[in-house]
């Protein structure tokens, strides 16, 4: 009885830690040898990659997917619904949207959501 309890008190937290570890690592470990990436496309900022309504509600999912697939899997080409191809890069978005320096910040300040994009990337507020 005594030993069982010791196992439990040590084992359960350990199990929890492993579960958390798996959660944090996400799916980044099961990558096969990278395939030859599709030919890069030029940054095209003349049109948006999706409908405005869709982008308003889901831009974070798109950016999250872009980050993972482009940085971790090397797949830097996004094929939009209508078949046009875009470079998976913040530059694609900001090429147009940076004309309004407060484009991101208006809503993000209001909703108090602060993703860490600008820890690495240059924000439209910082560009001259």
């Amino acid at each position: 009885m005594r030993i069982n309890k010791t196992i439990l008190t040590i084992g359960l937290p350990a199990l929890l830690m492993f579960a958390l570890l798996a959660f944090f690592r996400q799916s980044g470990n099961a990558v096969e040898a990278p395939k030859a990436p599709p030919a890069p496309v030029a940054v095209d900022s003349t049109k948006c990659i999706a409908q405005t309504e869709y982008m308003r509600a889901n831009h974070m999912k798109v950016l999250y997917e872009w980050r993972n697939s482009s940085v971790r899997e090397g797949n830097r080409v996004f094929i939009a619904q209508n078949g046009s191809r875009f470079q998976k890069s913040l530059k694609t978005c900001l090429g147009c949207h940076a004309t309004n320096r407060l484009f991101c910040f208006n809503c993000h300040m209001y909703a108090n959501v602060r993703p860490k994009c600008w820890n690495c990337h240059l924000s439209p507020m910082e560009t001259p």
Binding site: K61, Y64, Y110, A111, N112, V113
Partner: peptide, 9 residues
């Protein structure tokens, strides 16, 4: 799910 928080706010 990553809900859109703007309408929530």
């Amino acid at each position: 799910v990553r809900l859109n928080v703007m309408p929530v706010k």
